[in-house]
Amino acid sequence: MTLPVQAQFALVLQSVLLGAGLALFYDSLRAVRIYFRLGSVKTALCDTVFCLVMLAAVFEFAIARAAAQTRYYVPAGAAAGTWIYFTLLGSAVRAGWFAVLTAAETLRRWLKKERAKLHALLCRAANVEKITGFTKKFAKPPSIFRRKGLK
């Protein structure tokens, strides 16, 4: 089954978007991997996740969009989309990811510090020994029936 020229052109543009989307996903994983300095095992895990996502995306694209036929301009369009992404947007997106990850790390550290301050403040305000002393002082003596085992 042949596609009209307009449908083939639309398919090329969609494959360019597929390549750019996969490059964005790879760049996101790469920014996380670089920022957190993941070891070789976690890097391999990230690469495996990317390969599985890419395989699923390309398979679905080939079945749903390319009508399960071999069209050599589809991988060429995906490669062009990847090249366009890395040429035009790659460094800006990576810098954005680093800014977001740095802000999240700063917020996490600030919340940890504030949590420690709040805990110290509550411990000082509560003064656990004072409260237990008051509860012992004002507690009712046990009933005489309880001493004999009756309820």
Rank of each mutant, 00 (worst) to 15 (best):
C51E: 11
K140W: 00
F86V: 01
S28F: 15
G21D: 15
A56P: 01
A125M: 11
A104E: 08
D47L: 13
T48K: 03
L17Y: 06
F25Q: 15
R33I: 07
A23E: 15
A10P: 10
Q8K: 06
C51I: 13
C46S: 10
V58L: 10
T87A: 06
A62N: 08
K136L: 09
V74P: 00
L89D: 06
A57P: 04
S40H: 10
A66M: 01
L11H: 12
G133V: 03
L118F: 14
K113Y: 13
V128D: 10
S40F: 09
S40R: 14
L45Q: 01
L101Y: 00
T2V: 09
T106W: 01
A68M: 06
V16H: 05
T106S: 03
L150S: 11
A92F: 12
E114S: 03
L111G: 00
F145Y: 07
V100K: 06
A7Y: 06
F98C: 14
K137W: 02
I131A: 12
V5N: 08
E60K: 15
A68P: 00
Q69W: 03
V128M: 08
P142I: 00
A20S: 15
L22Q: 12
F25D: 14
A126M: 10
A67E: 13
K137T: 11
K42T: 02
L111I: 02
I34V: 15
K151S: 12
Q14V: 00
C46A: 09
F86L: 12
A64N: 13
V32G: 07
K137M: 05
F61M: 03
R94E: 06
S143W: 07
F134C: 09
R94S: 09
K112E: 15
V100Y: 00
K140I: 10
D27K: 14
L122Q: 11
R30E: 05
R146G: 09
T2I: 12
L118T: 15
Y72H: 05
V16T: 04
L24A: 15
I84S: 08
A78C: 12
A66C: 01
R147M: 11
T48H: 11
W97F: 13
W83P: 00
R124H: 09
P141W: 03
E114C: 04
L101C: 04
G96C: 02
K137R: 14
G90W: 00
A125I: 02
K112Q: 13
L107I: 06
T43W: 07
L88W: 00
E129G: 15
A57W: 03
E129T: 08
G96K: 02
F36Q: 09
A76M: 11
P142Q: 15
L17F: 13
R71W: 08
I34E: 15
S40K: 07
K151T: 10
F86N: 12
T135Q: 13
A67I: 09
G96Q: 02
T87R: 14
W83R: 07
S143N: 12
K130R: 11
I144N: 13
A44W: 06
N127I: 05
W97K: 03
R108V: 08
A67Y: 04
A62E: 11
A126K: 07
S40W: 13
G96N: 04
S40I: 07
A31T: 02
S28A: 06
A10K: 12
K136M: 07
L13N: 08
V74E: 00
A116F: 14
F134E: 15
G39I: 01
I63V: 06
F61I: 03
F61N: 02
P4W: 09
S143V: 01
L118I: 07
G96S: 10
P141C: 04
K151P: 00
L88V: 14
